[in-house]
Deep mutational scan, measured.
Amino acid sequence: MDCGICYAYQLDGTIPDQVCDNSQCGQPFHQICLYEWLRGLLTSRQSFNIIFGECPYCSKPITLKMS
């Protein structure tokens, strides 16, 4: 499936590997796309290497662990 942010399947050789945990959403994202999206939200917060925010599609909580 394509990334829900950039709408591409491959981005710099990677495929969407982050998925919204909401079973009714399940939208996939590239890690870098989701990172940039969450960084741009005023409501997002970060604790060590984990960013907490809202899914761009369903607005439910989503987390991103940076590797």
Score class of each variant (00 low, 15 high):
15 I>E: 07
26 G>E: 08
15 I>Y: 13
47 S>P: 04
22 N>H: 03
48 F>S: 06
38 L>H: 04
24 Q>G: 09
55 C>L: 00
8 A>V: 06
20 C>V: 00
24 Q>W: 06
12 D>Q: 03
7 Y>Q: 13
21 D>G: 05
63 T>L: 07
41 L>C: 10
41 L>W: 10
17 D>T: 10
20 C>R: 00
31 Q>D: 06
40 G>R: 12
30 H>V: 00
10 Q>N: 10
9 Y>K: 07
35 Y>H: 09
43 T>D: 05
28 P>V: 10
37 W>M: 05
30 H>T: 01
25 C>E: 02
59 S>L: 07
6 C>T: 00
19 V>L: 06
56 P>Q: 03
9 Y>F: 07
40 G>L: 05
50 I>H: 05
48 F>E: 06
11 L>N: 03
22 N>A: 03
62 I>F: 07
25 C>M: 00
63 T>P: 03
8 A>W: 04
57 Y>V: 13
18 Q>S: 05
13 G>W: 01
30 H>A: 00
64 L>R: 02
8 A>T: 12
48 F>N: 15
65 K>R: 13
57 Y>R: 13
11 L>S: 07
58 C>L: 04
64 L>I: 08
29 F>Y: 07
34 L>S: 01
15 I>S: 06
29 F>D: 00
29 F>K: 00
9 Y>S: 06
31 Q>A: 10
13 G>V: 04
12 D>S: 03
40 G>T: 09
33 C>M: 01
41 L>M: 06
50 I>V: 11
37 W>C: 08
61 P>E: 15
58 C>Q: 00
57 Y>Q: 11
26 G>L: 14
46 Q>D: 10
18 Q>M: 08
48 F>M: 13
9 Y>V: 04
44 S>D: 06
26 G>D: 04
48 F>D: 15
2 D>H: 04
34 L>C: 04
66 M>W: 12
39 R>L: 08
55 C>T: 01
36 E>L: 06
61 P>G: 06
45 R>G: 11
20 C>T: 00
19 V>R: 08
37 W>D: 02
56 P>A: 02
33 C>L: 01
59 S>N: 07
42 L>R: 12
36 E>W: 07
31 Q>K: 08
12 D>N: 03
24 Q>C: 08
43 T>W: 07
55 C>D: 02
66 M>E: 15
7 Y>M: 12
10 Q>T: 13
18 Q>W: 07
15 I>R: 05
25 C>W: 01
24 Q>S: 09
24 Q>L: 07
39 R>H: 09
53 G>M: 01
41 L>T: 07
57 Y>P: 06
12 D>E: 06
38 L>W: 13
7 Y>K: 15
64 L>C: 12
50 I>W: 10
8 A>I: 04
31 Q>S: 13
9 Y>I: 14
24 Q>N: 11
41 L>Q: 15
10 Q>M: 12
61 P>M: 03
35 Y>A: 06
10 Q>D: 14
48 F>P: 15
45 R>I: 04
53 G>R: 02
46 Q>S: 11
39 R>W: 03
57 Y>M: 14
31 Q>H: 06
11 L>M: 14
12 D>G: 14
40 G>C: 01
26 G>S: 07
17 D>A: 09
19 V>T: 15
3 C>F: 03
12 D>K: 06
65 K>D: 13
41 L>A: 08
18 Q>V: 14
41 L>D: 13
3 C>R: 02
32 I>N: 04
8 A>G: 14
21 D>N: 06
30 H>E: 00
14 T>W: 11
17 D>K: 02
28 P>A: 08
23 S>I: 15
31 Q>F: 10
14 T>R: 08
31 Q>P: 12
15 I>M: 07
34 L>A: 01
13 G>A: 05
13 G>R: 04
15 I>P: 09
50 I>K: 11
11 L>H: 15
25 C>L: 00
18 Q>N: 10
15 I>A: 12
11 L>F: 15
36 E>H: 06
30 H>N: 02
18 Q>D: 02
18 Q>K: 09
40 G>A: 04
57 Y>F: 14
59 S>V: 03
18 Q>P: 00
10 Q>C: 12
39 R>M: 08
13 G>E: 06
27 Q>M: 09
28 P>N: 15
64 L>M: 08
24 Q>M: 13
64 L>A: 14
66 M>T: 09
3 C>A: 02
22 N>K: 03
24 Q>T: 12
55 C>Y: 00
43 T>V: 08
57 Y>C: 13
27 Q>V: 14
62 I>T: 05
59 S>A: 08
36 E>S: 13
27 Q>R: 10
25 C>V: 01
38 L>V: 07
15 I>N: 04
57 Y>E: 12
